[in-house]
Amino acid sequence: MNILMNILWIIFGGLFVCLEYVVSSFLLMITIIGIPFGLQTLKLAMLALFPFGVKVQSTPSDGGCLSVFMNLLWILLGGIWIALTHLLFGALLCITVIGIPFGMQHFKLAGLALTPFGKTIS
């Protein structure tokens, strides 16, 4: 079932979202300071391509103060807008019964887009 849902996700916009994350990741990696943020957008791109059957978990050693600082910086520099976009798409998709599974995946992406540091995808 996850394979079918992932194929439908890719057809109906998942590939576009993944490409946006990959392009923004490469743009962030142009500078040395942006490399950690580019790696996090690659994490988002991987999840945006195949979200069904994947769990987002906090790491056992979440990185401490550095992870908190990087998440705060991420939120201020654009993470809030990415998360709000996913929340909007999730709410729009949850209006219909057929769109509820896709909306739930946008809510999962919104959670990761808000604070990606200290999280793993499994």
Results as ranks from 00 to 15, higher is better:
L88T: 11
L66R: 14
S24K: 13
L49T: 10
G53K: 04
P51I: 03
W9L: 01
L39S: 05
S58T: 15
C18Y: 07
A91Q: 11
S25I: 06
L19H: 11
L42D: 06
K55R: 09
P60G: 07
Y21I: 00
F69P: 00
I11L: 15
V22D: 10
F12Q: 01
V22I: 15
G78F: 15
I82T: 12
Y21Q: 14
L87T: 04
L47Q: 09
Q57Y: 02
A48L: 05
D62Y: 09
V54D: 00
L42K: 10
F89R: 12
I11Q: 01
G34F: 10
G79N: 14
M46T: 04
C18W: 14
I7R: 10
W74L: 07
F52G: 01
T59L: 14
L84S: 13
E20Y: 05
L73N: 05
S61T: 08
L28F: 10
F26P: 00
V56S: 04
L84P: 01
F12I: 09
G90H: 13
F69C: 10
L87E: 15
Q57M: 11
T59F: 02
G79L: 11
L76H: 03
G79V: 11
V17F: 15
G79P: 09
I7N: 06
C18D: 09
I7L: 11
L88Y: 14
L88M: 15
L49C: 08
M5A: 14
N71M: 06
